[in-house]
Design a protein around this nucleic acid. Structure first.
Lengths: 341, 341
DNA sequence: GTAGAAAATGTAAGCGCATACAAAACAAAA
DNA sequence: TTTTGTTTTGTATGCGCTTACATTTTCTAC
């Protein structure tokens, strides 16, 4: 059945075998309504018989449409980005679009070359994470008039297409919650701020609210680490051993928080009695673990879905991508309580 | 700066402005060694000045190379597949390839249309999960002579390009471990077997080894559920309430195992004294939680990296993709112990 | 029946690029 | 100088498809 030197059949092969022109073949392929049912059936039979499928590059070249969308995410090793990407893909897949995915590893420079690469590939739209991107990226996007949306962010003053939430307000909510509980000595174990506006915004939110209450972060209990359980554990240990452990620790995400929590448990530090802990993301596990983690519920899947819809309708209607703010509510659970003393 | 009706410049624009032919432009773009340095510099200057970048579809059409690879995974909402995909992307990115990613949602029928879609897009290679794919997929792959590799599986008798591990042996290792500990009443809470050869193989491995010891699974404590913490908890509860709880539960993956473990703790069932639990995947968290989870260490990232390298070198050398077996060792931790009675 | 309009199909021109081949420029040898 | 060989550049074709336009067929109204 499989001939060795067999080439993929083209529309011309179909046309010949069906005794029609390539235009007609193209029309049945594109569902044009002006092909007579009988002819259409004949052509489709040949297509089926020859196992023909269209050549996307040729199609793209001729029609100037690729039916691909791109996404550049920092990593897939963070469940929250994976979930967003998954939702995005599912949504565009339903509209017969294909996803070109690139991972920047939190590097804005790398992101730039990846965005360029996706643009070369002719993506009709792009999903990005956060508002912090290189100038070159923004220039490229503007010059090529590519539809894109920055998820994970809501900063209307920036006038960027955002489908996300306010990291600053989320950070503020965390700070307010802890201060409201009576905490005065609060530390922050955030992710790496370099090239990451979400991290920075959250920290600003925290600091602002603390300042509003006449407080400040305990700098001896404030640091930046990679998102890993192990790092979270290490940092908690360091604070304990340095004697700088505050009464509450705001963690950059749930993974860090889980590390901090598990290490605290290991060291018999009662949570939340002796130490309150907050996370960020609301990973599925966090509500089941004991004590259940107080955290921010990040609408990761929703951002993926909505970003896809927004881009697709922008493409369809020729209008710019519409921004949209989503909620990222504080989920008060069991790892936060008034400080002991 | 941004002209409204501005079209992307083409090689012809570059050629004219630099006073050369399009062939020369093409040559500098492709790093051909036979362009004189001076001329090359002149052309590159114009490229830079006009912000030109090549049109991938046109390039693909003319050269019959797309520099894209595809991957079809069941979901990204499983950290283990996300990690594999991440590694795959990082590896091909380094070779200037771009990833076309599709999510099948564990549906072999959906997978078939996605594979076809990627093939239309001209992917030069494909990463798939498991060996169970529709006949049509295998036919398509064979007919188009596309390089592909089935990860997550090692079944040499099938003569398929595998870069993975033996799910059957992993299941066997789990069973052996528990039987060796003295367990006689063992249940299995696996993932959904429909369309999932990994799940089936693991179950076969378990059953075979049990049979070899003159045992069988406790069918009243054996079921299939979706991969979620909540489902794991629910099932544990059901077993307890039905009075069918065995002394050991083999879980389909770590997420299920975590659910089972957390529910057991909630119900004050001592783990591992009253109930041994095993997981599968070795999620980062599982070694930190207490009791630490006994599980199988799945080389997810390694599979992604190695699959990428295998496909790329198959493309480069024109040889078929080389299979390779990886280890998926049993990690004995704290959730397994001899049964109480 | 027929003219004219509408519907169906065909013809052919690119889309932007790579590349085989032709031509020109240059270098070395005579 | 001329000749020959080598390096560099240009010319022109076609990759497989869509689509404007031309042509043919079918339908409608008379």
């Amino acid at each position: 059945m499989v001939d060795e030197a067999e080439k993929q059949p083209t529309q011309l092969d179909i046309a010949r075998k069906a005794g029609v022109s390539t235009a007609t073949v193209s029309r049945v392929l594109n569902g044009s309504p002006l092909v007579k049912p009988a002819l259409r059936a004949r052509v489709e039979a040949v297509i089926e018989q020859l196992g023909y499928y269209p050549h996307a590059a040729a199609r793209a070249l001729a029609s100037n449409r690729t039916f691909t969308l791109g996404a550049v995410v920092p990593t897939l090793n963070n469940a929250i980005f994976a979930a967003c990407t998954n939702a995005f893909e599912r949504e565009i897949q339903a509209s017969n679009y294909t996803l070109l995915l690139a991972v920047s590893n939190y590097d804005l420079g790398a992101e730039e070359v990846l965005v360029r690469r996706l643009l070369e590939r002719g993506v009709e739209g792009l999903l990005l994470i956060g508002n912090a991107h290189s100038e070159a990226v923004y220039e490229l996007l503007a010059r090529t008039r590519t539809n894109y949306v920055n998820t994970w962010a809501w900063e209307p003053q920036l006038q960027l297409p955002n489908i996300g939430f306010s990291n600053r307000r989320a950070g503020a909510a965390l700070a307010d919650h802890l201060v409201g509980l009576g905490h005065r000595r609060i530390g922050l174990v955030s992710g790496i701020a370099e090239g990451n506006d979400r991290v920075r915004e959250r920290a600003i939110g925290v600091r602002e609210r603390l300042a509003a209450h006449g407080l400040a972060l305990e700098e001896a209990a404030t640091t930046e680490i990679r998102y890993s359980v192990r790092e979270g554990r290490r940092v908690l240990g360091e604070f304990v051993e340095a004697g700088t452990l505050p009464t509450a620790l705001i963690c950059g995400n749930d993974v860090i928080a889980l590390g901090v929590l598990l290490e605290a448990m290991e060291r018999k530090i009662p949570v939340p009695e002796a130490l309150s802990i907050t996370g960020f993301d609301n990973l599925p596990l966090t509500e089941h673990i004991r004590p259940a983690l107080t955290t921010i519920d990040v609408p990761a899947s929703a951002m993926g879905h909505l970003a896809a819809r927004a881009i697709l309708s922008a493409i369809g209607d020729g209008v710019p991508v519409a921004s949209r703010e989503l909620e990222a509510p504080l989920l008060v659970r069991e790892t936060t309580a008034p400080p002991a003393a």
